[in-house]
Design a protein around this nucleic acid. Structure first.
Lengths: 337, 337
DNA sequence: AGCCCGGATGTGAACGCTAACGTCAGCCCC
DNA sequence: GGGGCTGACGTTAGCGTTCACATCCGGGCT
């Protein structure tokens, strides 16, 4: 497809046909596994294909079949564990049947989101995955012209868009129940950004578990996923806080550091639980109890839902949730008292 | 490009031409910014395009121009900071002029590498970026059929392939010089995998700085980039080790933890320096002195080199190095004695 | 034997675009 | 005033596939 610098063009179907002594249509049939081709003929064609190192021209095929076999992924340009894992998870799932084109945006505002969608449509993608974690991003999706199947990944509920995500609510609730079960009177929560849908769901799950247990409901402290914000918010924690659920592992790292600086010991004085189970989590000081998410599964489900929407037209699809799992390590224990 | 479920096909150039009262060729000229179109005519065409919401068919255009405007990135399926940053950095750089298609491999063995290249060639990409960090991956590149420009990213030197990478040798050397300058008799090194080219270069830089200073050269401890390996290797460190240079920040985290468990204090007893400057590095206990890499710049340079190779044919391109920068925090200080 | 049917192949026409011409004004200039 | 030039178009011919249809041939049936 790249311009040939050596002057001679790559072989086309007609060349193969000539060499094999058949018509181009027979070559096409062989290529597309049609029945009604004699084994002998097929072999001759295959031999010719190999001899010429022939490769079908994707553009020509696309022109007539109207299928590009390409899916687009819009992702925010972030090193965050979740989005990155989902990108790879999705690519792995789609790899067999589709090409995956990416667009990484510096921010998920409406303008750049629509721009990215438009670019993909121009490219001819058959469906789009949006790894949107903020309200603004998902809100922008409402404005995309219909006709292109879109599935949101890793973000919470929204009316008109299909989505696949980890069940944040259940994850946060189970972590909270676990801490309560250890004997803590209540659990504090250092959440992600207020505009972040994952963060919201985790807050909801935490609150629900608290309420169900009749425990006091402390005010939410909202960070921005970064270790920096965890550090700052962790520094504001005062007695009698004995248990903290963090919105992600990275913020938990900041909290750990803030507590250490103030001479508070984990888990003796304060129990800390994270969310994500990033690979480093078991090497924090102390190893972090956290909620593990299966992003490979998220990617697989996302492909399923997207393909479903692609074939069924654009009917609003389901909202799939994949269940997280609590991984207990040393950063959470029964309160000292 | 997706099959239209509503039955009616999207408008084509001829539709626009009819509405504007011109020939399809004139529409083409307007679309491609050809001169020799009267302003009045151009406006009429543009109005028709807008009215019909016409979009040029990318496949048809590709068929005749033989250009796909697509670049492929082969990346190993890893959450490592470096590869991921380079992927995004490259996409950002290429976004204006190209589509970026990705293939994430579970491993960079020769078979899967060749498979990925082949897949991309079939798709018609104009050039390929390989984020290869291991010997095996780069070695496999030697076997790809010529004709497709390939640039390796983030990996060391190899004869026949252009590459863009951070200057690992200089980074490791400067970190080593810094520790030596603080008064340490020598610097130990916990390296990445022996087969990893970045790791090798860092070892080389470390050794060179040691030699230049006439310092003793301890044996290299080789990990695998993970916090786990850092933890294990860190546990093997014995007196009189006073300074450790780690191959990346994540391993440094493991080292930090291992030292803490043995009651050794950082930086009082042992100085630790990382490599990468991941966002969390400043929230480790203590905040990590490390070598920062500008992956955005790497992405930009990679695009330059790749485009150069695409236009110049396939002549072996240059090996570009971008300079890293030492960021000093609290994990390294003068030795106690 | 005549007929029909279906398997195996070839032929022509799209698909939607750009490149290479052809055409036809209008203009300049000797 | 006619030849040549240039700007502003239109016409035709591909690009390399697949699809719809035509063709051919052998065999089973009546």
């Amino acid at each position: 497809m790249a311009p040939q610098p050596d002057g001679k063009r790559p072989p086309v179907m007609a060349d193969v046909a000539r060499l094999a002594g058949v018509s181009h249509q027979t070559v096409s049939r062989v290529l597309n596994d049609h029945p009604n081709v004699r084994a002998h003929t097929r072999d001759r064609v295959l031999a010719a294909i190999r001899e010429l190192a022939y490769r079908p021209n994707a553009a020509a095929r696309t022109l007539v079949t109207r299928r590009t076999h390409t899916l687009g992924v819009i992702s925010v340009d972030t090193m965050l564990y979740g989005p990155t894992s989902m990108l790879y998870g999705f690519e792995r799932a789609a790899h067999d049947a589709y090409f995956v084109s990416i667009a990484s945006l510096p921010a998920l505002d409406r303008r750049s989101m629509l721009g990215a969608v438009d670019r993909f449509v121009g490219q001819g993608v058959e469906g789009i995955i949006v790894i949107a974690t903020h309200d603004s991003g998902v809100a922008a999706l409402a404005h995309v012209p219909p006709g292109v199947p879109i599935v949101a990944l890793g973000c919470g509920t929204h009316a008109s868009i299909s989505s696949v995500a980890v069940d944040n609510e259940e994850g946060a609730a189970s972590a909270t129940r676990y801490l309560l079960g250890l004997g803590h009177k209540t659990v504090h929560h250092i959440a992600g950004p207020a505009s972040n849908l994952d963060a919201k769901e985790r807050v909801a799950g935490w609150r629900k578990a608290l309420r169900a247990a009749g425990a006091p409901e402390p005010a939410v402290l909202a960070g921005d996923w970064s270790a920096a914000s965890g550090y700052e918010l962790g520094g504001q924690l005062r007695q009698p806080v004995t248990a903290v659920l963090c919105g992600n592992d990275t913020m938990a790292l900041g909290v750990l550091r803030a507590l250490a600086e103030r001479g508070l010991r984990v888990p003796d004085d304060v129990s800390v639980v994270g969310f994500d189970d990033i690979p480093e989590a078991s090497y924090y000081t102390p190893p972090l109890t956290t909620v593990r998410q299966d992003f490979g599964e998220v990617g697989k489900q996302a492909l399923n839902v997207l393909v479903e929407r692609m074939t069924d037209g654009v009917a609003a699809g389901p909202k799939v949730r994949v269940s997280p799992e609590l991984v207990t390590r040393q950063s959470a224990a029964a309160p000292r008292g």
